[in-house]
Nucleic acid binder design. Structure first.
Length: 314
DNA sequence: AATATGATCAACCGCGTCACT
DNA sequence: GAGTGACGCGGTTGATCATAT
């Protein structure tokens, strides 16, 4: 019995999102918070399926998203995490809070895959699909062995990432998620700035053509979003000065901070990664005798670690 | 200038998982 | 425990832009 398609309704719009739709969606989420995606199309009047709304929000409109070029640091992180986790892009993205899984996936497929292929040409002819193919999937019955392998790989990848991070920290500390592990992963103020950039960018184009309030209200139909639309990007009920009609820039108008934004806790809902990282780091640090972490000895201990090191950890 | 080819990335699709009844 | 609905993830597609011919 197959599952019926989620968007088989006639009249469901597909394709690129328009700025109007973005604004309606942002306004709605500002008012109601993310989640309950099923209700979003109904309540906003958007002719989109719930899935599409969620995707648009998480991949594009969500506060804290950094777009554009990946830094060398991010690139290294992705490569190491891909080796460690495989194509679990959401898990990888949880270690790079400013990037979406879709972004990382695209970047891997378009840039890193090729890069690694190039690097590996001549070294390992049979490894044509990046690092992950060095660690083929293990059958379900062998989960224990896989766990051990994963542990080993986690140690190794993290130590390498740490060593790289230490080496580069003077250059780019902002992307060094390991340098202050418990303070840098959650969103900081700058993330919200980048989010307003997203929105201001779409508004920039949109406002050239239309009056957003009129248009969005009309598009929203009978939804309850009218109130929100009067101040679509304040992100703060008390910040009613942030009207679109004023000459104030969107960035100023939004006046976002992690403290006053309703997205404060939501901006990266999946903090599983942080937990994972924290646990791993804790473990690594506790196991520091073998790693030499924090003692200025680099990661020789890890590199020389035998595959049996994972045994007895639990 | 016109066309072909390649690269990029936003969005879609199908499936798995989880939560609720 | 089974059935159902909603959500989230990963693979893939297709539109658009950039570059080469």
């Amino acid at each position: 019995m197959g599952r019926p398609p989620c968007c088989d309704k006639i009249g469901v719009k597909k394709g690129p999102w328009t700025p109007e739709e973005d604004i309606i969606l942002v306004s709605y989420i500002q008012e109601h918070g993310p989640g309950n995606w099923r209700a979003v199309p109904t309540n906003t009047g958007l002719l989109r399926c719930s899935k599409s709304c969620r995707l648009r929000w998480t991949n594009y409109l969500r506060p804290g998203i950094k777009r554009g070029n990946f830094t060398e640091q991010e690139e290294k992180m992705i490569i190491h995490l891909q080796a460690l986790l495989g194509n679990r892009w959401a898990a990888i993205a949880s270690y790079l809070p400013q990037r979406t899984d879709n972004d990382i996936k695209n970047y891997w497929n378009t840039h890193l895959k090729k890069k690694l292929k190039k690097l590996q040409t001549g070294q390992d002819g049979d490894n044509q699909d990046g690092i992950s193919s060095s660690f083929p999937l293990i059958s379900k019955g062998q989960w224990e062995r896989r766990l051990q392998t994963d542990i080993h790989m986690a140690k190794r990848a993290l130590s390498e990432a740490l060593s790289m991070t230490n080496a580069d920290s003077s250059k780019d500390s902002s992307t060094n998620i390991f340098s202050h592990p418990h303070t840098t992963l959650p969103y900081q103020a700058s993330n919200y700035a980048s989010s307003t950039e997203n929105i201001s960018r779409l508004l920039e184009n949109w406002m050239k053509n239309k009056n957003p309030l009129k248009s969005a209200a009309a598009t929203a139909g009978s939804s309850s979003s009218e109130g929100a639309l009067s101040c679509p990007f304040s992100f703060n009920s008390s910040n009613s000065d942030a009207s679109l009609g004023s000459s104030t820039s969107v960035e100023e108008a939004a006046n976002l901070t992690p403290e006053n934004s309703i997205f404060q806790d939501e901006s990266k809902p999946n903090m599983e990664g942080e937990v994972q990282l924290t646990m791993l780091e804790k473990w690594l640090l506790e196991d520091g005798s073998g790693l030499g972490l924090g003692q200025g000895h680099g990661h020789e201990g890890l590199v020389n670690m035998s595959s049996e090191d994972g045994e007895g950890l639990f």
